[in-house]
Design a protein around this nucleic acid. Structure first.
Lengths: 98, 98
DNA sequence: TTATGATATTATAATAATCTAATATTGAAA
DNA sequence: TTTCAATATTAGATTATTATAATATCATAA
């Protein structure tokens, strides 16, 4: 069977996701989130970005559907939004980390 | 065994690659190149970008090591530079195209 | 209440990316 | 040698992205 080349719409959609992934600290945050939910504070400590920056990263990734969050009183715990995102991170890990 | 979180250096490197991938027409070009080498003209016809834009896309992707090119007289045939790049495209295809 | 820790928002300056138009190069063919 | 097709380069205006600083919100504890 012949390979299917993606449509322009698909390329727009996927490249939009990649654009959000394509930032060193957002990517690092997502790698951590693959391990499980983390609070903003935890993620701030795990990266070397400021609290404001991390909150903005998470806000953008949430707006674009890469992560979701659940409030636990003062804490806001973020996690990977869906399996496609998890699969991208895992695929990148497999390709570059072995 | 515990999962390995990438180092900052790895995140910089991979996010740099992703940044170059994260463009609808560059991504489409790469999807075509997975099928085999293509000339600049062919790629210009397969996308709806101008010849100048396609040449610039290819130039950037070549500079960043995503593609390589081989001149065949007047033609310049581009292809995927290495297996890691091919694997990224194929992984994305698997995740989003099925 | 007041204070405090956790998080979000806003504004802004600096930088980077993008597209287009114009022009240059290069090899082959006439 | 002139022409033409294929490709590359350059310059510029426009727009997007980024990091930082300052401030706001909001829940809890004192």
């Amino acid at each position: 069977m012949a390979k299917k080349i993606p449509t322009k719409d698909q390329c727009f959609y996927v490249s939009g996701l990649l654009k959000t992934l394509a930032h060193p600290q957002r990517l690092l945050i997502l790698c951590h989130l693959v391990e499980g939910p983390r609070s903003v504070n935890e993620l701030t400590e795990l990266t070397d970005a400021s609290q404001s920056a991390v909150s903005q990263f998470l806000g953008r990734m949430k707006a674009e559907g890469l992560v979701k969050s659940e409030r636990d009183n003062q804490f806001n715990n973020y996690e990977i939004a869906n399996d496609q995102i998890k699969q991208i991170i895992q695929a990148l890990d497999k390709i570059f980390n072995q």
